[in-house]
């Protein structure tokens, strides 16, 4: 019987990867909350996940597989980095709104934790199958 780990773990693995990247971006936004002219950035999680679903690992439309490949501006690892629209503009040109970044970070953390929980369940299933008890 052929067992495919990637298929078994499904979308949870790319989701974890993406959520940890997003945590980094949001942390950078909060860190620069007082830096003049800093522009808050984020990724469109739904879009990127859809991309991951349509193009399984390694076949994404903008994946860098060689050091000589060009990185399109505004993209990292094939994700498009977007700029956040502030609800209240600030006079120093900074677009970070700490409360928005915080809630996004918390939400991202919860999603990360639930992905982990799902993966953990999958591994437990495997262990049960291997041990047979």
């Amino acid at each position: 019987m052929q067992f495919n780990f990637e298929k078994y773990l499904g979308l949870h693995e790319p989701a974890l990867h993406l959520q940890s990247r997003r945590a980094q971006l949001l942390a950078a936004n909060v860190a620069n909350a007082d830096t003049p002219k800093f522009k808050a950035r984020d990724i469109n999680f739904r879009e990127v996940m859809k991309q991951a679903e349509e193009n399984p690992k390694g076949q994404g439309p903008l994946r860098i597989t060689s050091t000589q490949h060009f990185q399109p501006p505004g993209f990292t690892d094939g994700y498009e980095m977007l700029y956040r629209h502030p609800r209240q503009a600030s006079i120093d040109g900074n677009t970070v709104e700490p409360e928005a970044e915080h809630s996004a970070f918390m939400e991202n953390t919860m999603r990360y934790m639930s992905s982990l929980r799902f993966l953990s369940g999958k591994f437990n299933t495997l262990t049960t199958a291997i041990k047979g008890q």
């Binding site: 950078a28 007082d34 990185q71 990292t76 690892d77």
Partner: peptide
């Protein structure tokens, strides 16, 4: 270095 977050 685009793959990293930006520090202050």
């Amino acid at each position: 270095e685009k793959t990293k977050g930006v520090g202050v």
